[in-house]
Design a protein around this nucleic acid. Sequence first.
DNA 1: GCGATCAGTT
DNA 2: CACAACTGATCGC
Length: 639
Amino acid sequence: MSSFQGQMAEYPNISIDRFDRENLRARAYFLSHCHKDHMKGLRAPALKRRLECSLKVYLYCSPVTKELLLTSPKYRFWEKRIISIEIETPTQISLVDEASGEKEEIVVTLLPAGHCPGSVMFLFQGDNGTVLYTGDFRLAKGEAARMELLHCGGRVKDIQSVYLDTTFCDPKFYQIPSRVHVDKLDMFRNMPDILHHLTTDRSTQIHACRHPKAEEYFQWNKLPCGITSKNRIPLHTISIKPSTMWFGERTRKTNVIVRTGESSYRACFSFHSSYSEIEDFLSYICPVNAYPNVIPLGTTVDKVIEILKPLCRSSQSTEPKYKPLGKLKRARTTHLDSEEEEENDLFDDPLPIPLRHKVPNQQTCHPEVFPMTVVSQNQPENPRQSTGCIKAKSMKTSLWANFIDCEESNSDSEEELQIPASCQGDRSPPHQQKTDTEVPQWDVFFKRNDDDTDCGLENFPSSAEAGGSQSPKLFSDSDGESTHISSQNSSQSTHISEQGSQGWGSQSDTVLLSSQERNGGDITSLNKGSCRPRVKENLPASQMEQNVLCPKDTYSEDVNVVFSAGEPTTVSSGKHIPQERTLLTLSTNPDSQSSSDFEIPSTPEAELPKQEHLQYLYEKLATGESIVLEKRKSSLLDT
DNA sequence: GCGATCAGTT
DNA sequence: CACAACTGATCGC
């Protein structure tokens, strides 16, 4: 729960995620995401009055957050006073003191925070230095390194302060498996690409509905949405409750899904970064200061600061921190106010604010162009949006850089340098339009959950060790300790297969595992990954997973299960399907609950399991035996 | 009646 | 453990 009071030392004229008390005097407001604890005062009469009096005060947030916020009638009064800013689009905002006319320029860049739909971090750049407000965030290890707008000239920007989500900033939350999310439909009404994956049709197999008395409902053979079996045959439901279990440094892999009852499971899940993720993030950013936004119960500000301190600059090298961007990108400096000719070439447009329209995500723009949106408080309804290059005259320092993807760290091959970075500067990824041997592309991040193995119980290893999520594997290592799959038993399997199909009538009839597949004979459907864009090992699982609710061209064809945080998700399963697969696989194919519903993408670069292996696994599953993967490690995990 | 706060629950 | 949302009681305006 955020205890951030709304103001940052460097830029006290703006308020973020708090809208009461002294924040009532802010010249501009920022909302990182639509969660109540970050919206304190946002609909209070005091602020309402302020808005009526101060016509230049606006609320800035991501487009999705704007949608979500305006979904509630209680916040509709904001409608004409919200300015949404595209992700990763540096935007200049004039902070005007209406009384004196005094003006302060600030550039804000929204960076995806991976916490919930629309959630962002705010990177502010202005005369008082660069500061990062993370809001609530969950980013996998290595994620910061991939955020080009956190970099300049191949290095992490010189960040004065980070205002950090420290929810799990405690070694006991050292590791949390990477994730898996839906809510009411109305809030998505203007997000067609999200809508696309949801339905109000209750006769579907995977429900993320909820009800205060869900548990009772289950007993009455009813789902939280009220649906019951039509033919008196009991529904077979499996409920999955997301909750945060943390994983320390342990030698043995631990279940990420724990069975808590006949048909109920707890899936480890978090919207917040784990300790190790925070550690990675902060040490990479290496700010001068880090301030905790969250002081969890039972701890104190001082204790949290003690944890953060060693990760800040004073505790590390006095040299400016240099971190190669690794496989993902190389920076090309494009100092906006640079004296260098080369860079000026990139910015030969004389204007400070070229009037170019924004390019839709899936399109490309010239690589040398850096987007810059200038929002003038005088033109709120029609901000001078532009993806063109800009020289931000008011900025003291060179704040921006472009990046070119590269395969190898520190490699200087010309080829790499000449890679046409198709969407540089745009919100679109710099990685777009690459081949499958390239680094992950931005929309790949949104597109699928290749690494849902963690929660998805895929029979494949995650790519965790390679810099992505460090989630525990679903299967134990070769120490022979069989973990989670063993939590299931035959009674469940049969349970599902019989009643599930009958109870769900036509819906269940669409459960489509081919007989070959059931017999382990056809593994192609399990490995659609082979025709997907390939994802490099560094692609963090959580990033892909966490973004499943982002607007779609940015994402997912094969979203995995949608959970409602804090509430059980109900799953009705179909026939003869290894249980976990049924549980956690959801096709987003809008047209059918066809076989794709049950096709789980393989982990990138994982070796395809052999038919015998699958058969072996399925047989074990069917009989309820524990699955021990002794020798399998080499073939399944070491790929 | 409404909002804020707190405690408790899910 | 924790989060986030909700409920109900209480208090003050």
